[in-house]
C-alpha cells in the first residue's frame, strides 16, 4: 500500500512546528501503524535526514506510551485500539494520513510527536493509591468482594494512562482518567477509608495542573482505547459531592 503522510515536526518545546509531507510506498497491510512509521524513519535515515520522534514501547496496547493523533482522532479511527495496535489494513491504498501529537495545553510538545504527560502522574501522586505499607497486609481473602464489584473495579482499572481522553476533550479535561482511578479504588473495600480524601485531592490536583472542567461531551469515552465508560465520571461526581459536604462539616475526612 502507498500513503501520503503529513507529520507534525517541531524541533523542541519552544520552536514553532509545522506539518511536513512524506510519501511512503509498499507498506504491508499487516504492518501496524508504528511499523509503518519505522519504515519511514529508516527511509529518512538512509537519506541522512533526522526521522520524527514519537513515543512507543510495548507495541501491544498496554503500556500507554504511544500517543498519536491520526486524522484528527487520538489513536486513530479504530474503536478501542491504541495506535500501536492499529493496522494498515484499516486504511485505503493511496490515502493521505495526518499525524499530530496530543493537542492539549497541559501536555506541552517536547519534540515532534512527543508530549509531556507528567501532569497525569501528579494526579495519581496526590491520591491515586491505597495506603498500605509492604508487610502490613491481612490475608487476601479477608475482604470478600462480590464478583460484580470486582469486575466493575477491573473495568475502571484497565485505564492505560495514555491521555487520549484529554487529547480528545475540547476542554482538555482529565476527568475520565481521574475518575477511572477513583472508581477503581473507591469501589473496593480496601479503598474505602481514603475514599473522600482521594476524590478531593485528585480533583484539586487535576485543576491545579491546568486541565479543563468536564462538560459531559463524551469525546473521551469515544477515544479511549480501553473503552472506559463515562459511568466512572458519574461515580467520581457522586463521591466528590459527598466528600465536599462531609469535609464542610468534618474537615478531617
Amino acid at each position: 500500500m502507498d500513503f501520503t503522510l503529513r507529520i507534525w515536526r517541531q524541533k523542541d518545546s519552544v520552536s514553532r512546528g509545522e506539518l511536513v509531507e512524506y510519501k511512503i510506498h509498499d507498506v504491508s497491510e499487516d504492518s501496524s501503524f508504528l511499523e509503518m512509521l519505522d519504515i519511514l524513519s529508516e527511509n529518512l535515515v538512509e537519506d541522512g535526514k533526522v526521522p520524527m520522534a514519537f513515543d512507543y514501547d510495548c507495541r501491544e496496547g498496554i503500556c500507554g506510551m504511544c500517543s498519536l493523533t491520526i486524522n484528527g482522532i487520538p489513536h486513530g479511527p479504530e474503536n478501542g485500539t491504541t495506535a500501536c495496535q492499529l493496522h494498515m489494513r484499516h486504511f485505503n491504498d493511496g490515502q493521505t494520513i495526518t499525524i499530530e501529537p496530543w493537542r492539549a495545553k497541559p501536555f506541552p510538545v517536547v519534540k515532534d510527536l512527543i508530549v509531556d504527560r507528567s501532569p497525569l502522574d501528579k494526579i495519581i501522586q496526590s491520591g491515586g493509591f491505597i495506603t498500605s505499607r509492604a508487610g502490613s497486609a491481612t490475608d487476601a481473602n479477608t475482604h470478600l468482594i462480590n464478583k460484580g464489584t470486582a469486575d466493575y473495579a477491573m473495568d475502571a482499572a484497565a485505564c492505560i494512562g495514555c491521555g487520549a481522553c484529554v487529547a480528545a476533550c475540547p476542554n482538555a479535561s482529565a476527568m475520565l482518567f481521574t475518575s477511572a482511578k477513583v472508581a477503581h479504588m473507591n469501589s473496593l473495600p480496601q479503598g474505602k477509608p481514603e475514599k473522600h480524601r482521594r476524590a478531593l485531592a485528585m480533583v484539586s490536583t487535576m485543576d491545579d495542573e491546568g486541565f479543563g472542567g468536564c462538560t459531559n461531551i463524551g469525546e473521551c469515552e469515544a477515544a479511549c482505547p480501553k473503552n472506559i465508560s463515562l459511568d466512572v465520571i458519574a461515580h467520581l461526581n457522586r463521591d466528590y459531592s459527598i466528600a465536599q459536604v462531609k469535609s464542610f462539616f468534618k474537615p478531617y475526612v
Binding site: F129, I130, S132, A134, G135, S136, A137, T138, D139, A140, N141, H143, L144, I145, N146, K147, A150, A153, M154, A157, H184, M185, L188, Q190, G191
Partner: peptide, 19 residues
Amino acid sequence: IDQCVANGVPFAREYGGLL
C-alpha cells in the same frame, strides 16, 4: 498476594467474593 490485594489490585473473584 496479600500485599497486592491490600494495594487494590482487582484480582478475579468468585461469586462468593473469594479470590
